[in-house]
Amino acid sequence: MYTIGADIGSVAVKVVLSKDGEWIDGLIAPTGWSPKSSGAEAIAAILDKNGLSRAQISRVVATGYGRNSVDCDERITEITCHAKGARRLFEGSGIRFVLDIGGQDSKAISLDEKYNVSDFLMNDKCAAGTGRFLQNMAVMLGCELKDFSLLPSDIEPHAISSMCTVFAESEVVGLLAQGVDKRALMLGILDSVASRAEGMLRRVGFSAQSGASGVAFTGGASRSRNLVALIERRLGVPLRACEKSQYAGALGAAETA
């Protein structure tokens, strides 16, 4: 039995095809301006790639901010899907917390012993602490998003105190003018994201004790190994991220299908 989970995020559409609960294929495409068409195109693309037709798929479940704009069998919020996806990705690890940092929002989720959501917190009214924040900073520093993952680990981050994207930009401009090392600033920018993430996790009950088995890290920002290291340094527990972390929401949706 084939199912599809489609996570239509603000930056990227993630689609997972699974058969009897097992991962078959995954696909990531930019969302662009139309979540409706990019969602439909991504679903069509994964079907095409695997030589399947829509009729062969028993259920399509959509999640993410664009979930209401695509044609599907069910819609589930990304909170529930990320929890289910993290469970699938890190089953047996005993994780009790999920941190998701996507393009437009970030969220901290606490799970009970059966991996059900017991509490969550979302930051979605402000770019601070999200992928969008990093994207803006990358543009300003004349680099690319992937450069935020290639920084040396032996440089101390230069603290950025502004939480607001707009003010952080002017702060960074000032610091560059003062001759602060660009790499230290980039690490500082990442550390400000890490600091927001830490705050959210603590508010849903994270402590070194309750989170001792680690924190699942999902969403696009989980691809930055520098960010992973900075968050781990703050939390004092390992972050669990893998190459499929960005698919967590879609995987969770496919799981519930």
């Binding site: 990304e78 909170i79 959501v117 017991s118």
Partner: peptide, 16 residues
């Protein structure tokens, strides 16, 4: 302006 975000929050809260 936050109607969508509220919907996600309340949806997730009830799914929980």
């Amino acid at each position: 302006s936050d109607v969508e975000q509220l919907s996600t929050r309340m949806g997730a809260f009830i799914e929980m």
